[in-house]
Simulated scan of single mutants.
Amino acid sequence: MVRLAFSTNAYTRFTLTDAVRRIADHGYDGVELLADSPHAFLPEFDEDDRTRLQETIETTGLSVSNVNANTAMGYYDDAPDTSFFAPTIISDSETERSRRVTYTKRAIDLAGAVGAPAVCVATGRPEPGNPPEQAREQLMNSLHDILDHADSVGVDVGIEFEPELLIECTEEVLELLDVVNRDALGVNLDVGHAAVYGEDPAESIRQCAGHITGVHIEDIVGGRRGKHYHRIPGDGDLNFEAIFRALDDIGYDGFATLELYTYPDAPDRAARRALDALERYTA
Rank of each mutant, 00 (worst) to 15 (best):
R269E: 15
C169A: 09
V20R: 08
G115R: 04
G124P: 12
R269T: 14
R280Q: 14
L185E: 05
A277W: 10
G186K: 09
R50F: 01
D265Q: 13
N70M: 14
E218S: 11
D109T: 10
E96A: 14
N239F: 04
N188K: 03
F41A: 12
N66E: 07
S91Q: 02
N66T: 09
E160F: 08
F85I: 06
T15L: 08
L53K: 02
L238K: 11
A86T: 12
A242S: 11
F41P: 12
G236C: 07
D156F: 11
A19N: 09
G192W: 09
N70H: 05
G198N: 07
A209N: 01
C208P: 09
A135V: 09
G223A: 08
E162D: 10
H216Q: 14
A69Q: 00
H211K: 14
A122C: 15
A283H: 12
G154F: 05
R245Y: 07
G186W: 14
G129Y: 01
G61V: 09
A246N: 04
Y263D: 07
E172A: 12
V191M: 06
T59Y: 05
S7R: 04
R106C: 02
T95Q: 13
H149W: 07
F244M: 01
A256E: 10
G124W: 11
R3W: 12
F255Y: 13
G226V: 05
D48V: 14
E133C: 00
N239A: 08
D235P: 03
G254H: 02
I23H: 01
I159Q: 01
V101E: 01
E259G: 06
A242P: 01
K227P: 00
T82G: 08
P132C: 08
A202C: 09
F45N: 09
Y75M: 06
Y28S: 07
A10F: 01
E203H: 13
D81F: 14
T12V: 15
P264R: 13
L4P: 03
H216T: 12
S142R: 08
R13G: 09
V64M: 10
H149L: 12
I167C: 06
I205N: 01
T51Y: 10
H144E: 15
E32R: 07
N68C: 13
G198P: 09
R22L: 11
D268I: 14
E96I: 01
F244H: 00
I57E: 03
R280L: 12
P132M: 06
D237G: 06
D48K: 13
R272Y: 09
S98F: 07
T95V: 13
L258E: 08
P117L: 05
A256S: 13
Q138L: 15
E279P: 02
L247Q: 08
F255T: 00
D249M: 00
I243S: 04
A150D: 01
V215S: 03
R136D: 06
L275I: 05
E218M: 13
R97V: 13
E172F: 05
A35P: 11
F244K: 00
N181D: 15
V157F: 10
T102I: 02
A107T: 08
V114T: 07
